[in-house]
Design a protein around this nucleic acid. Structure first.
Lengths: 333, 333
DNA sequence: CTGTTAGCGCCTTCAG
DNA sequence: CTGAAGGCGCTAACAG
């Protein structure tokens, strides 16, 4: 690969001149500039971003931390960030945290050692204080789908409580009173908030919350099945079910069908996230949309602002909306 | 951030010694080594991989090119590569090609300028000769889901022809004779091969191929719908349909249901890829499994072999298998 | 086994 | 506006 030095030699100028036309910061005599550019194409010159990064300790790329690579949720997240960053000529380095503390920390170290200018993270295992320290002492970060006290500006989150509220309210409006709930793991923030919204909706409707109607899952498809089975074994009848994400909803639907139930007549089901397959299931899933791609985009814009002087508006709290499809229907006594 | 020099100073040794304990290539006196390690933790030292990369022109990371970030297929691909590479302590830099020539080339240049040691690519737009040149003149590459003449060793691919054959044979064995086919874009290799397999199955069964029963789509969900509608408008009855991927199959299923058809009684449908949502659709989709995660893993192992002296076995051609679920049933006259 | 000395490719003062 | 010189953090011969 040609280096800046060879370009300089061929163009008959010094390497600083080449550097200047490369970066376009300072003005360069038009003739020299032309010569340099000619030399560059002739040599098929490509700047080495590693060298540049070492010299400037910047890299024009931002690190991304996701929990998994192969789920629709994170797919949308990555895609949202990548496309808006790329439009600004920034690049993206993606790492995986697997919802595990050590892995997340390793990933962060890797990204930093790669001179990333900033980090956009979906951190699940790292603690609030770690994140605060990271942001203060190391490099700017933005958190997607999480709210950290003391880092309000950096957080882009969904109003999960409202989402839970919407789901349950929808069911209440359809006349359901006995509403079961399969939650995510309660150690995860958003899972708590969604459940909280569910409870508020019940309360406002004057329906007593019955702990026997809720089951704690792990956000995985399998939990929809085991949850439904468990709930049904408790001898507390219910006519509707809200699941804290679409995976569990899909699991519950399959299970219900295997049990010979007729959906949605025998059971109305609401999901959460409106993940890509939500309208592939049958009946098509009524769910709460989680505009993760938009949030990701916003997160990227925030980084663009703080790092490269852009001036996008940044919206920090996103409102979920209810997407009514065919998996819910009016209560039939 | 602490540098190797500061560590050396604090430990009272030269920086080459520090470098040595860092890389562990040569032996270092145990006492000195201890001193160095102590200094490293005290200073919370982290090696700067950019500097290392500049000095060695290696980076212990391999670039990945996918077409999209937010689809199950590429999700599995990325996940397969990432996990096996990470197990070998290599990192991954992911870029997106969007099935567009310029974008793909930019992505490749970015990865090279980042000193990636190798590339694992799902290249769709770049031409065979570009890929050959890339591999010969620049850096080792491995191609997933593509076969290039002259690059046999670097290619990990699925026997798509066999997949098409399996899908149609399954239907034939169920007694269907009039089998419609919604293909992918014929400019894409695998789409051609899948169709070829379909034709071979018909031929072997003594069923004449009827061009009126095939429709060319673009591998998108929408094509399932438009394809089905178009095929039905051609007044050539059929009792079964194979779609060249699951997205189109899902689209066709929704459309069929909207048309009031009873699945699978009124129409048996087979998909291709066995993508994550294939068993979320209803009826659960019979499809041809595409072990993309395994292929991705193999691709990573190939790179590990050629680059870092590993000695994994590498399987270059993968056999698809038929996954029979509930979207197909015996022909009813 | 250890320290010294050059670079890796580029940017960035500083003079001119 | 241009060139010379030093340095980013680390590795890799080369002597000792």
């Amino acid at each position: 690969m040609a280096t800046i030095y060879q370009v300089a030699e061929r163009a008959g100028v010094s390497l600083s001149t080449v550097s200047r036309v490369l970066n376009g910061k300072t003005t360069v005599n038009a003739t020299l500039k032309a010569k340099v550019e000619k030399a560059m194409v002739e040599l098929n010159y490509r700047p080495n971003s590693v060298a540049r990064s070492l010299a400037t300790s910047r890299s024009d790329s931002v690190g991304i931390l996701v929990s998994e690579l192969n789920t629709p949720f994170f797919g949308d997240l990555m895609q949202g960030v990548e496309s808006t960053l790329r439009a600004a000529d920034k690049h993206v380095i993606i790492t995986v945290g697997h919802n595990n503390l050590t892995t997340e920390q390793d990933a962060v170290e890797f990204l930093i050692s790669r001179n990333c200018d900033a980090l956009i993270m979906h951190a699940e295992a790292m603690k609030d204080e770690d994140l605060i320290a990271l942001n203060e002492k190391r490099l700017p970060i933005s958190l997607v789908n999480r709210q950290v006290k003391g880092l309000e500006n950096n957080c882009i989150a969904l109003d999960n409580e409202k989402g839970g509220y919407l789901a349950t309210t929808h069911l209440l409006e359809l006349g359901h009173r006995d509403i079961a709930y399969i939650s995510g793991p309660m150690k995860i923030r958003d899972a708590c908030q969604r459940l909280k919204g569910h409870k508020r909706a019940l309360e406002e409707a004057g329906v007593a919350y019955n702990p026997f109607l809720t089951f704690e899952g792990h956000y995985e498809e399998e939990d929809g099945k085991t949850g439904l089975l468990e709930l049904m074994s408790r001898d507390t009848p219910f006519s509707a079910l809200v699941c804290a994400n679409d995976w569990m909803a899909s699991g519950a639907m399959s299970c219900a069908r295997d049990l010979g139930m007729d959906l949605p007549h025998d059971l109305s089901i609401v999901g959460f996230d409106d993940v890509v397959f939500a309208h592939h299931v049958y009946p098509r899933l009524t769910t709460v949309s989680n505009p993760i791609a938009d949030m990701a985009k916003m997160s990227a814009q925030y980084i663009l602002n703080t790092l490269y002087g852009h001036t996008h508006n940044v919206q920090r709290l996103f409102e979920p909306t209810l997407v009514v499809r065919e998996s819910t229907m009016a209560y039939e006594s």
